[in-house]
Design a protein around this nucleic acid. Structure first.
Lengths: 237, 237
DNA sequence: GCTTGTCCTGCGGGAACCCGCAAGTCAGTG
DNA sequence: CACTGACTTGCGGGTTCCCGCAGGACAAGC
């Protein structure tokens, strides 16, 4: 049994290494990669079945790395080990996990015990392990609360990229008015409405929406970057 | 000599603690705080003269914490120890360092030797130590390159907050046209211009600008949050 | 069948935005 | 002094955005 670790922080990497060795005595080889890009090639080379990785990495984001790893080998078992339970990350992960794949998502703040437990559950028992806090975020997105629906999230991303209504419409094959309708739903969800009080302190709803999304951690820079790359791919087909 | 450590990652915290003790034998007390908010009160309580802190923290960002610490005691010596050299952080720090204060900025990726060296230089010799990589970012901002001037940066932040031209104008005591002029400078600097090719793939310049700024790491979520708080303070004076 | 709810679409207008043109201020320089 | 360059302001118009109103498509339920 071989395990691949992808993590750009040296301290965390060695901590993970130790945790893996101690939690999985049946593991006879642990390989380390320092970022997403290297991790991808390493995974390909090793034909890795078991991966534990960070999400926020400089060179290449964990989500992108996981996406290509899973694309090449959908039955890879991946345990995400992240600092944050931001909606942007959680949503990013659930967007790319293939049908029936097993994975885990634990926070770096959890105890060593739980980390080891998660390693065993995910790798040996093929059981999905999601930190309760992360779970909460996930539910909120789906539930009736002030979470965004998929349609709303997609338009949010397009707006955050800086596209015009018209461009979004043609990309998504919708009429202009429909796009604008969804935008209005988005504005309601994000509570970006003008306090009808005095004249001052009015917002540009469009940019205000992305500001609020950023502050609520619904969106983050890497989500925008991923979307940007998809956009470029689209354009230069 | 007492040193205060503010860092929310447990591993990094204990690593720092060890580094401080070994680099500064004259240090007889090391205190740890797990986030910016707690760090502020601890600094006040201890009347700390020597602080080493992370920048990116959940509860309260390092920049905000440093700002209040320096406001109460401008001669505090602070060593920032961060994962990133993003322009947003670097600019955020240089914005708040008081006249004549001594501080340092080293990346977490540097070797233990250099960290210890920085600790001694900043705390004992009152010498500013800035990682060469960080230095590079700093220069780029000032220099003639495609860095943003202060005026441009400020308007970028206001736009990213979602304010309208008119609101920005009245806040900054400028005419509407001036604001729009600065916006155009900003668009040039960020190279946000329509490829005059076909009709499709046009951008909404305003939101596109913040997208580009995010991707270039000129801006990040915490910068927006700081600005938002300042804005609220302004409004509810 | 009728109703109710949800989603897409068109029209139209008022506001905001993007931006070229021109004129004015103010500093520094020959 | 005139001249250049950087910054500010006003005007005007073409475009995009925000959004109310109204109509149509489709599914679910009394």
């Amino acid at each position: 049994m071989k395990v691949l670790i992808i993590e750009d922080d040296a301290l965390h990497r060695s901590y993970l290494n130790e945790a893996v060795r101690s939690a999985l005595p049946e593991c006879d080889a642990v390989t380390e990669s320092e970022n997403g890009r290297l991790g991808e090639v390493e995974a390909r080379k090793l034909r890795a079945e078991f991966v534990v990785m960070d999400l926020q990495m400089n060179e290449r984001n964990g989500i992108e790395a996981a996406r290509t790893i899973w694309r090449e080998r959908p039955d890879t078992k991946i345990l995400f080990w992240s600092n944050y339970s931001d909606e942007a990350y959680v949503r990013g992960v659930s967007r790319i996990v293939p049908e029936g794949a097993t994975y885990g998502y634990v926070l770096k703040s959890t105890s060593e015990e739980r980390l080891k437990l998660a390693l065993r559950s995910v790798f040996l028992e093929s059981q999905c392990v999601i930190d309760r806090e992360v779970r909460g975020i996930q539910q909120k997105g789906m539930g009736s609360g002030h979470g965004l629906s998929d349609a709303e999230y997609e338009i949010l991303v397009d707006v955050a990229l800086g596209l015009t209504d018209k461009t979004i419409a043609s990309r998504k094959k919708l009429s202009l008015r429909t796009v604008q309708n969804r935008l209005q739903q988005l504005y309601e969800k994000l509570e970006v409405y003008q306090e009808d009080g005095d004249d001052e302190s009015r917002y540009n709803l469009r940019t205000r929406a992305v500001a609020v999304a950023l502050m609520r951690r619904v969106l983050n820079a890497s989500a925008v970057e991923r979307a940007e790359r998809d956009l470029q791919d689209d354009a230069g087909y």
